[in-house]
Structure formats: C-alpha cells, structure tokens
C-alpha cells in the first residue's frame, strides 16, 4: 500500500468539547469522521466549527490534539490516526 493510500483512508476522531463549545455544540464529546487522515489544522478547525455550531468562537479556540496544543494554520499539516482525541478549548474568563 502506497503512502498516498494511507493518507486517503477514512478515519474517525474523538472530539471533546469544553466550556462554551460544549454549550454551543450541545455535546460533551462526539465521534467525527474524516475523509482523509491528512488535513491542515485550519481545515480541521473549519470542519469541526461548521459541524458543531462553533463559528462564533472559531477565532478564539485552542485546539489540542492528544493533549498537545495545535497551531492553527493552513501550513500546519496534520497526520491523524483513528481515535485521536481533539479537545476544543475556548477561553474561560469567569471567577
């Protein structure tokens, strides 16, 4: 199997919603299907925001992949695996 085939493989990732994103999505977590395991972080955030009603807070979200900060950019090419955990973390300002 060539490398290209692997990248085209459909995968499911696990999305965890925190704070405001939980309220907007109406969910604690979700399983999300991707057509390809290779995707830019900007695209990934775009797809998740569109699917889960997060457009309003898209610019202020921290995206963490497997508990590690992910820079949002069209140059940030991700290679995700089945079951990877994507945490959606908006800022929290209350006290």
């Amino acid at each position: 199997m060539s490398c290209g085939d692997t990248e085209k493989k459909k995968i499911n990732i696990r999305i965890l919603f925190f704070a405001k994103s939980r309220e907007l999505a109406g969910l604690d977590e979700a399983s999300f299907g991707l057509e390809s395991s290779s995707i830019t972080s900007l695209d990934l955030l775009g797809k998740i925001s569109a699917a889960y009603n997060l457009e309003a807070i898209k610019t202020t979200i921290i995206l963490a992949i497997n508990q590690s900060y992910c820079n949002i950019s069209e140059e940030e090419q991700l290679h995700l695996k089945e079951g990877d955990e994507i945490a959606i973390i908006p800022p929290l300002s209350g006290g």
């Binding site: 405001k20 309220e23 807070i57 202020t60 921290i62 300002s93 209350g94 006290g95």
Partner: peptide, 15 residues
C-alpha cells in the same frame, strides 16, 4: 500568545 484576539463579546458568559 494563546489568544491573540479577544472573544466576540456575545460569546462570553459571566458567572
């Protein structure tokens, strides 16, 4: 560094 732009006011919930 983490939040270069502030959140839109209507998305901020207070206690």
């Amino acid at each position: 560094c983490l939040y270069p732009v502030p959140p839109p006011p209507d998305t901020v919930t207070n206690c």
